[in-house]
Design a protein around this nucleic acid. Structure first.
Lengths: 262, 262
DNA sequence: TTTGTTGGTTGACGTGGGTCAACGGGCGTA
DNA sequence: TACGCCCGTTGACCCACGTCAACCAACAAA
């Protein structure tokens, strides 16, 4: 067995190992105190002391291959997940097969909150690329929330943020036109890439046109046409999944002044 | 000052008073342990002992007249609210004036959860009729969640339920046709009225066609036409805000088999 | 290299629901 | 009891987006 010694924030991570078998990252315990996603994730705003307590909470990491499910609707709810690497989509399915993508998640974001209410997951979570998550056992989270001051507040904020995000999507679906929806989507992606230290104006989408369409309540052809239209108008440059925002302000304007919207 | 003596669940409520001034309900402290909405509201599933602790948490009640705001987008977040009587809508506004109704709330449901994330409300909450809410100071809730076992779990479930509900609305807005949306809306209302001890098949809507339309991502004319269509087809009987579900199974069928939906 | 498969683009056409407009009934106010 | 306003209904028309179909590019497997 390897000997692992973690030290908290401020000092460097030191991992000493005397391993007779190769170490798989799978079995490695995650350490929030050492994670560079701290600013984006559950631990945001917590003190160093609290962060070290968090290290106890976060269990093993789990890898999820592209197209595989992290969980499925109906699975018993046991843990929530923090995305350490990669990205996911969540969707709900109707009996007749219709799919609605309810969100796309990136590093540092939390998955599985929907499961708390009924103690079973109510949507499917699928990796859009080979990804890795930190597993946070829910009963431990409940327990530790009683003890660690900042954890409870942060967790509430994460849930509340999800509710606010959902309201934004409702706005999008309920009262915007196709091109407005796509513009809002692109700006949102840009903003989230920026928060992760990537370029605000150039990125690779991880999802297909069909998935974007499902999320935005549009058919994939409409999404494709809107992309082309934006390119013609010099707002963006697209090539397959690679997108460059040439005129973010123009995209914003598109959303604000409805051109005779519903 | 009136002398008030409350006893916990199981015994009857006793209120002794020697009042020189008329008692206004406004000033009265709410007692969860005495409230008949316990099964629907935050305290659901908590023990009697825990319920009595909750009585400390829930502050004064507040009356909100029809069309008045309980809170507005931008207001500093200080409390969440449990609806004791009446009903509300929540909506978000775009700069250009477009409105999206994000939900309708009934007795026992919790308002204001959106405010936790940014410490300011992000939507408007408007009473659809003269209503009354219990004010639950958020800092006190945080505090008491550390102490009362069941409260934290229940609160998390309430938030999670809101997220699940929002996903349902996304499904509705993103992949259902006008008549399916209205059918889903009516069945949802029926189910919630039932949970409150009212008839599953006959009720009065509190919101206008325009508000329903905004919620469902439709124009009021479309809502009106769908109502008329359902009536022609013998599914419901409508007269203004009074609705009777004549064939709930038929409404369900409408949702499941899409008639060439998007 | 070829071939198959999946994802994306584009065109032609159809339609669900938005728009505009007229009208009528319920309800609150005087 | 009458007035006025909001709310709801209905019809005629139109357009944004869905549908159907052809085609092409990227990428993986052979």
């Amino acid at each position: 067995m390897p000997t692992l010694a973690f030290f908290c924030r401020g000092s460097r991570i030191i991992v000493q190992m005397r391993a007779s078998v190769p170490i798989t990252v799978d079995g490695l315990k995650s350490a929030c105190s050492q994670c560079n996603l701290v600013e984006l994730c559950l631990p945001f705003g917590m003190s160093n002391a609290e962060l070290c307590r968090l290290d106890e909470l976060v269990g093993a990491r789990r890898k999820v291959k592209r197209q595989n499910n992290l969980y499925r609707a109906g699975d018993p709810f046991e843990a929530i997940y923090a995305i350490r690497a990669g990205s996911f989509k969540t969707d709900v399915l109707l009996e007749d097969g219709r799919e609605q993508v309810t969100g796309f998640q990136m590093t540092g974001e939390i998955l599985g909150l929907d499961g708390i209410s009924t103690e079973a997951h109510t949507c499917n979570s699928v990796a859009l690329e080979d990804s890795e998550v930190c597993v946070i056992a829910y009963d431990k989270l409940e327990q530790m929330s009683h003890e660690v001051e900042g954890l409870q507040l942060q967790f509430h904020k994460v849930m509340s943020r999800e509710i606010v995000r959902d309201h934004g999507v409702m706005m999008l679906l309920g009262s915007m036109r196709a091109e407005e929806r796509l513009a809002a989507f692109l700006l949102n992606m840009s903003q989230r890439f920026t928060a992760r230290g990537f370029s605000p104006s150039e990125f690779n989408l991880r999802m297909t046109r069909e998935e974007i369409g499902s999320y935005l309540g549009l058919k994939l052809e409409t999404v494709s046409r809107a992309f082309s239209r934006f390119q013609e108008d010099g707002l963006i440059s697209v090539q397959q999944k690679h997108v460059q925002l040439l005129d973010p302000a123009g995209l914003k304007r598109l959303i604000q002044h409805q051109h005779g919207a519903r």
